[in-house]
Design a protein around this nucleic acid. Structure first.
Length: 487
DNA sequence: AAAAAAG
């Protein structure tokens, strides 16, 4: 391959015409209504949009990047960025490079890494809103970003990452500690403790770690009690940022963290990462961060081809359980691990009891469990000791277990208030299968007309067609798994 | 309805 046809991407923004009044993110919440009212006269940010159409190398034997070829990069200001073809050109420390090769077994940056890392690591360290497909390596992007922005000689918190669940915070910390193994950078979780070791935030020791990853409640209470110093933070990351800043998500908590940091520190870079940003939340987050760069994917291109989606018409609620045990689990056992998503804790318990009664070994996770039990159930599943996991949307986002090939929507994802389909949750759930380009299948169980309508809307929204699996047909499920490449 | 703080 010659260099001339290689795929370095130069993102050259146009010069800013009029000076845009820069709004600090802490101001946003206060005059959000005013902004909304002025939305008609909203200034269009000065941007240049370009399609990153990297040349596809032959499907490699190694599980690399699923197609993130259609990420739209939008840069602001006049900083040029060049996509990184190798980790070396990012000026990372030798210790960090070693972690990437030896611990992570990375060879070269994935597509989202190639584009986002220069934006994260190039002064003046602009804020970034980054969307990329499920399982494309978002975590490694911001983890690498945090590790490389920390000054190892300064023994104070310099990087903070906020996640929607403690499971995700723990998982992200594990990735960071693995990648940063040779750097000597210290890190810890700020999440609720289990009932045994629980201590009030006011009695917790002062956080000394250079990187802190946690959940909003704990982080806020650590800040409020001065156990977590935010004065020297250089980088603040929101994982699952759309949910972290959504009205029915963690918006208030997240804005409180941002405001506190903004008050005491004006050099903190903010990164917002997620696989999904619906239009409403997108327009809000673009106002929340300062002068920022953006990476976005069109919604039609978010649902991955490597994951085969199916729908199953079930006559009634009871038959959903039969479909799961007679059809899906019988075959599912052969193809790897399965996650079954349910809508409520009660639904989780009912399904759990029914399957256990029929002799299946299943475990269930939901937020009402004791923290220690949650940890145990996740660990058993990640260690492969359990095959079938029932979960509420606790694990819908971010949960990374490569052996999961099958996802079942026992209850379809809908929004609580409107009963409309929740497209974002749908996408996150199916993204638990087929991690990093692997094969996967998802079965959507429908039993009411409302269910069928929801699936229809999902098909329209993502412009996909979800194939039906016939309950009556003997071989239908087997064929479905074959088609998905799992049998 | 799920998640997330103590108490």
């Amino acid at each position: 391959m010659t260099d001339s046809e290689s795929s370095s991407i130069d993102i050259k923004p146009e010069p800013q015409p009029a000076p845009t009044p820069t709004k600090r993110w802490a101001d946003v919440a206060d005059d959000e209504e005013a902004e909304a009212a002025a939305a008609g006269s909203e200034e269009v940010p000065d941007v240049k949009s370009l399609s990153i159409d990297d040349q596809h190398e032959s499907k490699s034997e190694f599980l690399e990047d699923p197609d993130d070829a259609n990420i739209k990069a939008v840069t602001s200001g006049d900083t040029p960025y060049t996509s990184a073809k190798t980790f070396e050109e990012l000026n990372l420390s030798p210790d960090l490079i070693k972690g990437l090769y030896v611990e992570m077994r990375f060879k070269k940056p994935s597509k989202i890494q190639a584009v986002s890392l220069p934006m994260i690591l190039t002064p003046p360290y602009k804020d970034l809103i980054a969307q990329a497909h499920n399982g494309s390596g978002k975590t490694t992007c911001f983890v690498l970003g945090m590790l490389s922005r920390v000054d190892p000689s300064q023994k104070v918190p310099q990087a903070l990452c906020v996640c929607p669940t403690r499971e995700l915070a723990i998982q992200n910390l594990e990735v960071l500690q693995k990648m940063g193994k040779y750097t000597g950078i210290t890190s810890e979780c700020a999440v609720p403790k289990d009932s045994v070791s629980r201590i009030p935030a006011s009695k917790r020791p002062v956080v000394m770690s250079q990187v802190v990853i946690g959940t909003p409640g704990t982080i806020n209470s650590l800040i409020a009690t001065k156990k977590l110093s935010i004065n020297f933070l250089r980088i603040l990351v929101f994982d699952e940022a759309d949910h972290m800043l959504a009205e029915d998500g963690f918006k208030d908590d997240s804005l409180r963290i941002m405001k506190a940091i903004d008050r005491s520190n004006n050099r903190c870079q903010v990164l917002l990462f997620s696989a999904t940003f619906n239009e409403a939340v997108k327009s809000f987050v673009t106002k929340v961060v300062k002068d920022h760069n953006q990476l976005f994917v069109k919604k039609e291109e978010l649902s991955l081809d490597s994951i085969k989606q199916y729908k199953v018409n079930c006559p009634d609620e009871l038959s959903k359980i039969n479909v799961i045990k007679d059809k899906i689990l019988e075959l599912g056992q052969k193809v790897g691990q399965t996650i079954i998503f349910v809508r409520s804790r009660i639904s989780a318990r009912n399904l759990h009891n029914a399957l256990v009664e029929f002799g299946y070994e299943v475990t269930t996770i939901q937020g009402a469990l004791d923290q220690a039990d949650r940890d145990k159930i996740v660990k058993e599943f990640k260690d492969g000791l359990t095959q079938i996991l029932i979960s509420t949307d606790l694990l819908a986002r971010g949960f990374d277990q490569s052996q999961v090939n099958l996802v079942v929507n026992y209850d379809l994802p809908i929004k609580y208030e409107t009963r409309e389909p929740d497209f974002e949750v749908y996408l996150h759930r199916i993204g638990r299968a087929g991690r990093f380009g692997r094969k996967g299948a998802i079965f959507n169980l429908m039993c009411t007309n409302a269910d069928r309508r929801i699936i229809e809307q999902i098909e329209n929204h993502f412009r996909i067609s979800i194939e039906e699996v016939d309950l009556q047909s003997e071989k239908a499920f087997e064929t479905a798994l074959e088609k998905a490449g799992l049998l």
